[in-house]
Amino acid sequence: MKRKTARFPSKPCAPGDRTEFARLVDAYSAPIYRLGLKMLGNQQDAEDVLQNTFLNALTHLADFEGRSSLSTWLYRIASNEALMLLRRKKNAVNLDDFHPDDAEESPLPEVFVDWSALPEDELLSGEAKMALDAAINKLPEPLRMVFILRDIEGVSIKETAEILGLTETNVKTRLLRARMFLREQLSAYYSERLTREETHERPSP
């Protein structure tokens, strides 16, 4: 499967070097904005995550010691900002929500309709895109964060673990559960479309 390789500058800028910082902001804005958009589900919150991430980065740039890569460091700030905003919006702090029981077995698949060969313009119609967004929004937050980093942004398992302070095994477990959850949601949606199409093609006499 094709993976986007982020071509980010590997060395952070010296504190006070505004040209370098502006370059860094442009290089990382898109993935951080997308992370906010997918985690929070709306543009206003995504913009807050974006601004807070870089304000925070600007304040702490001098402390960045290069122990992790710059992208790991920025993603870590961004994921914390997104989770903090989510918690504030929920108005109830339930830390357990963010630490699911990774030992628990994944639910088993229920829909076995193969919709994977539907044409792409149908799979990505305006209505279908809304269904994709709705499916991501339904994903429990800890699974959503792992899915966004690994499958949408193409971050490696190892780096995702580093960003979120999880073990690689935890990341793999959450990724599998997220993928299964989304597959189930999409299967329900697309199999209904398939049925509608078949009914349409072969109207009953």
Binding site: M1, K4, S29, A30, Y33, R34, L37, K38, L50, V113, D114, W115, S116, L123, L124, K129, L132, I136, F147, D151, I152, E153, G154, R179, M180, L182, R183, L186, S187
Partner: peptide
């Protein structure tokens, strides 16, 4: 098949999303 397609589909719209 459907899991692979699910991952693909989630990536495609995201690629279009810029700031």
């Amino acid at each position: 098949n459907t899991t692979r397609r699910t991952i693909d589909l989630m990536q495609i719209p995201a690629e279009e999303e810029t700031v």
